[in-house]
């Protein structure tokens, strides 16, 4: 018999496996045409209700806007709302897609055949979020274009600072997604938790209003949510000419949150992996 196996295990082969997970996920993603809807249509439809409400409240002569301007220092209320909802959509999609990545594989029955391979298991979670991240970055780009073209939003800030904010937004948003993905494998009432988290983000992080309008205790909670900082920093960077110094404190907070959520996500993943081996949870569907 050809007695040696063909496997050659090392760091490189683990990276190659990670890359294989990414391209697998990308191929499957492109085969479901529903991504077109999430990429082009959702960003237009979702903020519409808020925008129209805002327009109604601003009054025929826009006197309502003066107060808004006084509270936010921004005159571009459409852009203000658009950015809040964009970040909310991003987090929401990450919870559903990255958060359910392992759960869906479990339902399909492929999770076990993946986990039988001699590959670093976190690669399956990490790898399946990369195409998701790419599609979300595209979504952000497409949305920005659409808001400019159809709603006349003027993004007068700095492109580079905006990109910097997005870069710092990735670790906390995806760290939360990883944490979720691991909990969802062993917990049954997972959907309820997604609704809870996105509801919390919607209310506390000021996606359509400045946090200043919240009562004190709610502001205190908002201070613990990374999305609050992402939204604020993104608005500062994208809507008006601002310096790096204006967003630096928010970026620092995001770096801390990012480190925290990524570590938590990884720890919970390891915990789940072990627990699943003991209870048989990964094979159940």
């Amino acid at each position: 018999m050809e007695s040696t196996t063909l496997a050659r295990t090392g760091v490189i082969s683990n990276l190659r496996a990670l890359q294989a997970v990414i391209s697998r996920e990308w191929t499957i993603f492109m085969r479901y045409p529903s991504w077109i809807i999430s990429l082009f249509i959702w960003p237009l439809i979702f903020p519409m209700a808020y925008l129209l409400t805002a327009r109604a409240f601003s009054g025929p002569d826009n006197t309502g806007l003066l107060q808004f301007q006084a509270a936010t220092g921004q005159s571009e209320y459409i852009g203000f709302i658009a950015i809040g909802t964009m970040i909310w959509m991003w987090q929401n999609v990450v919870l559903w897609n990255v958060g359910f990545a392992l759960r869906n594989e479990q339902h399909r029955g492929t999770l076990e055949s993946n986990w039988m391979a001699p590959t670093w298991r976190f690669a399956f979670l990490l790898g399946s979020s990369v195409p998701q991240l790419v599609s979300m970055l595209l979504m952000l780009g497409v949305s920005t274009l659409e808001y400019t073209l159809f709603f006349g939003v003027r993004f007068e800030g700095s492109l580079w600072l905006s990109l910097l904010v997005i870069l710092f937004a990735i670790p906390p948003i995806y760290g939360l997604g990883f944490t979720f993905a691991s909990l969802v494998i062993t917990a049954r009432e997972a959907n309820a938790f997604v609704f809870l988290v996105r509801g919390v983000v919607m209310i506390f992080c000021g996606i359509t209003y400045p946090i200043a309008v919240l009562p004190g205790w709610m502001q205190a909670i908002a201070a613990w949510l990374p999305q609050t900082y992402i939204i604020r920093a993104f608005r500062t960077a994208a809507l008006s000419a601002s310096s790096f110094d204006a967003i630096a404190p928010d970026l620092l907070m995001l770096a801390l949150f990012g480190a925290f959520w990524l570590c938590l996500g990884y720890t919970i993943f390891k915990w789940m992996e072990r627990r699943a081996r003991q209870t048989g949870a990964i094979g159940q569907y």
Partner: peptide, 17 residues
């Protein structure tokens, strides 16, 4: 949602070939 060949190529990478 993958072809037979794509499946095998994918799992070959997971098996560090």
């Amino acid at each position: 949602k993958l072809s037979g060949r794509e499946n095998l190529t994918y799992f070959a990478a997971l098996n560090h070939i």
